[in-house]
Amino acid sequence: MADVIQLNENTWSFEDGFVRFFLLVGEEKAVLIDSGMNCPDAAEQAATLTDKPLMLLNTHGDGDHTSGTSAFSEIYLHPDDYVKCDVCNRYPGTKLHAIADGDVIDLGGRPLRIIHIPGHTAGSVAILDVNNRVLIAGDSVQKGHIYMFGDKREPDIYEASLDKLIALGDEYDTIYASHDECVLPGDYASRVKASWQKVRAGEVSYEIADLFGNKVKSYTTDDCGFYLI
């Protein structure tokens, strides 16, 4: 069971000790954005906070964001991650609602716009809570270390996705991140991009770390970090 923190009148973060996910409530519907790593009861917890019909929308398909999926008959997810992150086989009874760049999901007076940002995974998306001027960025923008190793990652197109978020910067003031600090200033995608460019240019030293049996290069900057092979 995750610790729940109320961020505003109709938004909560769920902290499960490794990753963070969110509950957003509108006038007609509610949505869980991701469902954590250790929270098969995510839907049950959310139901204690709202009586609105609850849906599940994923920023991407990594296992640490999908633990509560089996409680839902349907999932909103980019189709690339439904396949490449093996969500289709891990939750075979769950119907996919494929989301795409520019889609809008309206909770009732609370529109959420989908922004496709491949790189961390092929189907990674950010979600713009339009009226509240908040960007929910998944793993792609954060203060912690961003996983960029393994066959699911697309490092060569990651910077272009950051540029996409930066170009939309006048539409949000705040970023909610899935790891490390929750609430980040609206310019944080620019900071992550600057750090990524330094890493790619060989300007940042690294240490070797062991992650889930993988020997990876751990890069740390003042604003974030990256794990790379």
Rank of each mutant, 00 (worst) to 15 (best):
residue 55 M to E: 14
residue 25 V to A: 00
residue 60 H to D: 06
residue 109 G to E: 10
residue 85 C to T: 07
residue 17 G to Q: 07
residue 71 A to M: 14
residue 12 W to C: 03
residue 95 K to I: 14
residue 40 P to V: 08
residue 91 Y to P: 11
residue 145 H to W: 13
residue 37 M to L: 15
residue 55 M to K: 12
residue 103 D to Q: 04
residue 83 V to D: 05
residue 110 R to N: 02
residue 147 Y to V: 05
residue 136 I to T: 08
residue 58 N to C: 11
residue 32 L to Y: 10
residue 65 H to E: 12
residue 57 L to H: 02
residue 51 D to H: 01
residue 121 T to V: 07
residue 104 V to I: 15
residue 130 V to L: 03
residue 130 V to F: 00
residue 117 I to C: 03
residue 143 K to G: 13
residue 35 S to H: 12
residue 43 A to G: 13
residue 146 I to K: 03
residue 127 I to H: 07
residue 151 D to H: 14
residue 31 V to P: 00
residue 67 S to L: 05
residue 124 S to E: 14
residue 58 N to V: 00
residue 102 G to F: 00
residue 100 A to R: 08
residue 117 I to Y: 00
residue 147 Y to N: 09
residue 66 T to E: 08
residue 142 Q to R: 15
residue 29 K to W: 01
residue 125 V to Y: 05
residue 21 F to K: 07
residue 151 D to T: 13
residue 94 T to G: 08
residue 43 A to P: 03
residue 132 N to S: 10
residue 41 D to R: 06
residue 145 H to V: 14
residue 103 D to M: 11
residue 88 C to E: 11
residue 43 A to V: 02
residue 145 H to L: 08
residue 22 F to D: 03
residue 82 Y to L: 00
residue 123 G to A: 10
residue 123 G to H: 03
residue 142 Q to G: 15
residue 67 S to A: 15
residue 124 S to Y: 07
residue 128 L to A: 10
residue 132 N to E: 09
residue 59 T to S: 05
residue 38 N to H: 15
residue 23 L to N: 01
residue 135 L to P: 00
residue 140 S to I: 15
residue 15 E to L: 13
residue 109 G to S: 13
residue 10 N to C: 02
residue 14 F to V: 04
residue 151 D to V: 10
residue 148 M to C: 12
residue 23 L to K: 01
residue 108 G to N: 12
residue 70 S to A: 15
residue 78 H to A: 04
residue 62 D to T: 09
residue 122 A to K: 13
residue 74 E to N: 08
residue 110 R to D: 00
residue 140 S to G: 15
residue 124 S to F: 06
residue 64 D to P: 09
residue 26 G to A: 05
residue 25 V to L: 01
residue 93 G to W: 13
residue 28 E to M: 04
residue 33 I to M: 06
residue 122 A to Y: 14
residue 42 A to G: 07
residue 23 L to M: 02
residue 75 I to H: 02
residue 110 R to G: 00
residue 70 S to E: 15
residue 147 Y to F: 11
residue 144 G to M: 06
residue 66 T to H: 09
residue 44 E to W: 06
residue 94 T to A: 09
residue 144 G to K: 09
residue 95 K to A: 15
residue 33 I to L: 12
residue 100 A to M: 09
residue 113 R to P: 00
residue 129 D to S: 06
residue 77 L to E: 03
residue 84 K to F: 10
residue 49 L to P: 03
residue 18 F to S: 15
residue 12 W to Q: 01
residue 61 G to Q: 03
residue 10 N to Q: 09
residue 68 G to A: 11
residue 153 R to N: 14
residue 101 D to M: 00
residue 135 L to D: 00
residue 72 F to E: 04
residue 95 K to M: 12
residue 107 L to P: 08
residue 95 K to N: 12
residue 10 N to S: 10
residue 129 D to I: 01
residue 82 Y to N: 02
residue 105 I to W: 08
residue 118 P to Q: 08
residue 9 E to F: 01
residue 12 W to N: 01
residue 131 N to R: 13
residue 133 R to T: 03
residue 112 L to F: 06
residue 148 M to Y: 07
residue 42 A to N: 05
residue 143 K to E: 11
residue 19 V to A: 14
residue 126 A to P: 04
residue 119 G to P: 09
residue 36 G to K: 14
residue 63 G to M: 07
residue 128 L to I: 08
residue 28 E to G: 03
residue 17 G to E: 05
residue 103 D to S: 06
residue 99 I to H: 04
residue 132 N to F: 02
residue 142 Q to D: 11
residue 39 C to S: 13
residue 93 G to I: 09
residue 19 V to Y: 15
residue 93 G to F: 12
residue 147 Y to E: 09
residue 93 G to R: 10
